[in-house]
């Protein structure tokens, strides 16, 4: 099962290596990984998606929690959360296909952020399924390059268990 794990960690050199080492040392592959600042300059937020056995990942999560630089760890897998990813994609776009592409991008609430004579760069944000669907439609047109941020996630459930989003 795929696990979405978020961590708040001290913004220190070596933290990333420590965390990645702990997970990859168990033979697990981190599928996506995102690190960014938070409102506290001393703290960074990491989000990662790791497919693997539930029991082992629970243990890995507990080991992560033990690391000195890790302030908190949350495995969101069994909870309500929103997961978003940003995709930048360069597709072949000869004049005659441009309108078709623009229509698709519009449908997916994306944006065309660069146009050149033979290609365009598209930006789309969304959950995994949405990005997959768009990619499947763009593939036949010729994907020249692609970059994805990997998911970032936030929990939506309040402490009382009620959710007020989505």
């Amino acid at each position: 099962m795929k696990h979405t794990i978020t961590l708040n960690v001290d913004n220190q050199p070596g933290v990333l290596a420590r965390i990645v080492g702990l997970i990859s040392g168990r033979g697990y592959n981190i599928e996506t990984l995102n690190v960014g600042p938070t409102q506290d300059p001393n703290v960074s937020r990491m989000t990662m998606q790791v497919p693997g056995d539930d029991r082992v990942l629970e243990q890995v999560t507990r080991q992560l929690a033990k690391l000195v630089d890790v302030r908190s760890v949350n495995d969101l897998t069994q909870r309500r959360f929103i997961n978003r990813e940003l995709l930048l994609i360069k597709v072949a776009a000869p004049r005659e296909r441009r309108s078709e592409i623009m229509e698709l991008v519009g449908l997916f609430e994306g944006k065309i952020i660069a146009v050149r004579s033979a290609d365009m760069v598209i930006q789309v944000a969304g959950d995994r399924d949405k990005l997959h669907a768009l990619l499947a439609l763009l593939e036949p047109l010729g994907v020249l390059d692609l970059a994805r941020t990997g998911g970032i996630a936030i929990e939506t459930e309040n402490h009382n268990g009620a959710d007020d989003e989505e």
């Binding site: 050199p13 070596g14 290596a17 420590r18 080492g21 040392g25 690391l67 000195v68």
Partner: peptide
């Protein structure tokens, strides 16, 4: 040294 000992210490530091 910190890279080498990361997995075999409880914690380590490179002082900057």
């Amino acid at each position: 040294t910190t890279g080498m000992t990361r997995g075999i210490t409880k914690h380590n530091y490179l002082v900057r």
